[in-house]
């Protein structure tokens, strides 16, 4: 929209011209008030155009595109490869002489650093496979229950140097033991996710960090949430509250919830209350590490209320099919849902 369009400019347009017109397309897609006003006015001034405009509008508004984005593990794999191959410092523009000295110095430095690194911050990784839930006892006797398809990372020297730090991808429930150092100061316990940090004293809470979404549910105790971006200020959560943050959508929500619903996975149980099938599908994808596809889009909006023990993946399709009276077919790692004819 470089120049503002005028009504007169459109008088010679037929349906095809409208279809391909940028300003017209903007109207159909976004329906901004000022755009809508322009097109309303045009139709009032020139009622003979109403029919073709309506026709073009109908066709454009009925176009939908199917999307397929990479799953979480693929995205992670792609990034890990890029991460390794994009070193933070490259010594490209330095002359030879200097380079040799630098090389010698850096080898020395590397040896020292490497040793230091090896001693100080070697990480322990705990990974869970699809439908696997594992219980991890940390050196400070805090407990982590790690949901399926998740990864927990912490330093080998966790709990020394007054630092208790963990990194989570996926979902986990934390029961934190209060811990004081020699001088009686309580030692912080920090859980990092991609977009935010949870600061804790003695507390039990759940962190969900998948699909660009981080959700923290606090069962008891007290936590402080700090955001990695600097737009949001730190927030405190009270017991029974949930905080949900989506970095891409920039949405932030804090509200009281039934904590049981968010931690039932620890007992390998799914609880759904009026949950759209689309969300159920996401939960299945997260837990089993498979893909769920809707052949009929209207299925996605079906609401489900149920409380079930997580079945093993082999009987998942029969269970879904019976419970929802739909057809479920399995294709490799993908479940295809469609309504019965």
């Amino acid at each position: 929209m470089k120049q503002h369009p005028t009504v007169d400019g459109y008088l010679t347009y037929d349906a095809n011209d409208f279809l391909a017109d940028e300003y017209f397309q903007e109207w159909v897609k976004y329906n901004h008030p000022e755009t809508a006003m322009f097109w309303q006015q045009l139709q009032e001034l020139h009622p003979e155009k109403k029919k073709v405009i309506q026709e073009a509008f109908d066709l454009l508004s009925s176009m939908r595109f199917k999307t397929r984005t990479p799953d979480e593990s693929r995205t992670r794999r792609i990034w890990e490869y890029i991460d390794v191959h994009t070193p933070e410092h490259n010594i490209r523009h330095i002359n030879w002489h200097y380079k040799k000295m630098l090389a010698a110095a850096s080898i020395l430095l590397l040896i020292v650093l490497g040793f230091w690194q090896w001693r100080k911050t070697q990480f322990i990784y705990k990974d869970t496979a699809g439908s696997e839930i594992s219980r991890i006892l940390l050196p400070d006797h805090s407990e982590v229950i790690l949901n399926a398809n998740s990864r927990l990372k912490y330093a080998k020297d966790f709990n020394t140097n007054n630092k208790r730090e963990l990194w989570i991808e996926g979902e986990a429930f934390f029961s934190v033991k209060p811990f004081t150092d020699g001088e009686g100061k309580s030692q912080p316990f920090i859980v990092h996710s991609t977009d935010l940090d949870v600061l804790v004293t003695g507390t039990a809470f759940n962190v969900y960090a998948r699909r660009q979404l981080t959700r923290v549910v606090l069962n008891h105790g007290r936590v402080t949430i700090q955001f990695k971006n600097n737009r949001e200020t730190a927030r405190q959560l009270l017991p029974g509250e949930m905080l949900e943050y989506n970095e891409t959508k920039k949405s932030l929500l804090q509200q009281p919830v039934d904590t049981l619903l968010f931690t039932s996975w620890k007992q390998q149980r799914f609880i759904f209350t009026n949950t759209p099938l689309k969300e159920v599908a996401q939960i299945i994808e997260d837990f089993y590490g498979c893909k769920v596809v809707f052949k009929d889009q209207e299925l996605a909006s079906y609401k489900i209320t149920a409380e079930i023990d997580a079945p093993d993946i082999a009987s998942l399709d029969t269970l879904l099919s019976k419970a929802l009276n739909i057809r479920v077919t399995k294709d490799g790692n993908t479940l295809i849902l469609e309504s019965k004819p």
Partner: peptide, 9 residues
């Protein structure tokens, strides 16, 4: 091009 056309006519 994986496009769906869905019109609620």
């Amino acid at each position: 091009l994986d496009v769906e056309l869905s019109a609620e006519t």
